[in-house]
């Protein structure tokens, strides 16, 4: 069995790691390569680098700092932000990313998922989904990097994740926006519903505030991995504490 993965996500804006609350208001938390290596040393199972404004600004991530991080890192690296073509996805892989995560561009043009999967393999394609409850239904949102660009899409989250899987996604990262940044725990109900629809791995995102939240999401929603950003950047929670708590609950983790 694979161990449950703990994934710190580096939200990057203008080449610096930032910490945001509910997608609004950001504070500088340091250099991406330095942060990535520090998390690796603390036991991160994987690193996600997310250029939070790339998609809204209609550009992709900076290959210069991507290579710099990939060169230093010896654990899996996924990148997200503004990847809207096969060429950009390939360029990310060729600059050292192991996986590319696509979100808004996949909603715009779902064929992109298949195009990347056909050429580079499904294992390289992660589909990120931003979702929140609207009138009793989970609905996907686009361009969530900035308050002025965010918009609701007509797609229901549960339909969209199944479509993404059918189109060749190798993994889904479900970011539950109502929980994001507020540290009250992952959205167990939404993640459980998503997990039941998928045969590919599901990664939980949004809401982690303490080690017990990771235990809860693994035990109750049976996700493969849990992602968190702000709590790791601020030092409020450290990766070894999370792993100890998850192991103490009888779940398998790489210590």
């Amino acid at each position: 069995m694979p161990s449950k993965r703990i994934i710190p996500c580096l939200d990057v804006k203008a080449g610096r790691v930032v910490k945001g609350v509910r997608f609004e208001g950001h504070a500088d938390m340091g250099d991406p390569a330095e942060c990535a290596v520090r998390y690796r040393d603390e036991g991160a199972d994987e690193i996600v680098i997310y250029d939070i404004t790339a998609s809204a600004e209609r550009r992709t991530i900076d290959y210069g700092w991507l290579s710099k991080i990939a060169r230093a890192l010896d654990i899996p690296l996924a990148v997200a932000g503004g990847i809207r073509s096969l060429e950009q996805a390939i360029a990310c892989l060729e600059h050292g990313a192991d996986k590319v995560s696509i979100n808004s561009p996949a909603l715009e043009r779902p064929e992109l998922i298949t195009e990347i999967a056909d050429v580079a393999g499904s294992q390289c394609v992660v589909v990120g989904v931003d979702s929140r409850s609207v009138d009793g239904e989970w609905v996907t949102f686009q361009y969530t990097g900035a308050a002025e660009t965010i918009r609701k899409t007509p797609r229901r989250m549960l339909d969209w994740i199944v479509e993404a899987q059918e189109r060749g996604a190798g993994e889904i990262v479900l970011n539950c926006m109502d929980q994001d940044g507020v540290r009250r725990g992952y959205d167990i109900e939404q993640l459980t519903a998503a997990r039941a629809r998928l045969s590919i791995p599901l990664v939980a995102s949004g809401g982690a505030g303490e080690p017990q939240h990771f235990v809860d999401v693994f035990q109750k929603a049976d996700v493969s991995a849990a992602l968190a950003a702000g709590i790791f950047h601020s030092g409020a929670v450290r990766i070894p504490d999370v792993k100890r708590a998850v192991a103490a609950a009888g779940l398998e983790v790489r210590l």
Partner: peptide, 15 residues
């Protein structure tokens, strides 16, 4: 073979 308790791809750290 994918099973409800075993997502495929097998993705992660395994002993």
């Amino acid at each position: 073979a994918a099973r409800p308790d075993l997502p495929v791809p097998h993705m992660g750290w395994t002993a």
